[in-house]
Amino acid sequence: MYDEEVRRVARAAMRAGESLNSISLRLGISRAALRSWRDQPDRAGVDDCPRCHGAALPGAAYAHLLGLYLGDGCLSLGKKSVYALRIACDDKYPRLIDEVVESVQAVHPRRPVHRARAVGYTSVVSCWKHWPCLFPQHGPGPKHLRPIELEDWQREIVASGIEPFVRGLFHSDGCRVANWATRPVAGEIRRYEYVRYMFSNESADIMALCQWALDQLGIPWRMPRRNALSVAKRDGVARLELIVGAKT
């Protein structure tokens, strides 16, 4: 695979009128590749990877997709070193499925995004050789059995898009629930209801990322269980109502 700088030099040479044979000999590029770049310029960068070529990623869409990937996503290797990114989505929430598709398309707009339907859920699928470049957390086995850490460039993107990241986390492994409690009022025991948000994940590292993101937003949380995080204080819930909201 030729990098973008080589393509840029080759295209400039072709525009200047240099022969394909001369460019091939000078740059070590096959004439077939040069003809493809000349005759199908719209496909010249079809496999360009922002990480490989130093291009910017769409921050909010990537932060959202990263949160989704850490929760319900995986990469699987197929033929010709092409990876399939799969985000599993509950069929009860069609709007969330549409939002996942939009984020995948924003991050990698050059390839189609598919919806693979199964019993009770839909997998949003996109195939690309470079998904591991964007999700270096990929590895063998379940996520909770291996270290999950953000690289510096990922943490920088997420830090500037904390809300989409939190939205992705809670849309994958979170829920919004109505709880109730009782308390004495004027000598009577009265029942009242309140909303709280829960996030559950078996990976201590992913849980720590959720805690870090909520801390950045100033949202208080507590851990009722080892693998469950709760946001129940009024101000924190109000903030998550704006960022996450009810699943639909």
Rank of each mutant, 00 (worst) to 15 (best):
D3C: 10
E5T: 13
V6S: 04
V6M: 03
V9A: 14
A10Q: 11
A12S: 07
A13F: 01
A16P: 09
S22Y: 06
R26T: 15
L27V: 08
L27Y: 12
G28A: 10
S30V: 10
R31A: 09
W37I: 02
R38P: 05
D42L: 05
R43E: 14
V46D: 11
A55D: 13
A56S: 15
Y62C: 02
A63M: 08
D72I: 11
G73N: 08
G73M: 09
C74L: 12
L75S: 00
L77S: 14
K80P: 00
L85N: 10
A88E: 13
D91T: 15
R95L: 14
I97W: 00
D98L: 07
D98M: 04
E99H: 04
E102C: 07
E102D: 13
S103C: 05
V104N: 06
V104H: 04
Q105R: 12
Q105H: 03
V107R: 03
H108V: 14
H108N: 14
P112L: 12
H114R: 15
H114W: 13
H114M: 15
R115F: 11
L134W: 07
H138S: 11
G139T: 07
P140C: 11
G141C: 01
P147N: 04
E149T: 14
V158A: 12
A159P: 00
A159F: 01
S160W: 00
I162S: 03
E163T: 14
V166N: 05
G168E: 01
H171D: 14
H171Q: 15
S172I: 12
R176A: 09
V177I: 10
N179T: 07
T182W: 01
V185T: 07
G187W: 00
G187V: 03
Y192H: 01
Y192F: 10
F199V: 03
S200W: 04
E202V: 09
A204R: 11
D205H: 03
I206S: 01
M207R: 09
C210I: 04
Q211Y: 02
L214N: 01
Q216W: 01
Q216R: 15
I219S: 02
I219V: 09
W221K: 04
M223P: 05
R226V: 07
R226A: 13
R226G: 03
N227H: 14
S230H: 03
A232T: 06
V237Q: 12
R239W: 00
L240H: 02
I243V: 13
V244P: 00
G245S: 10
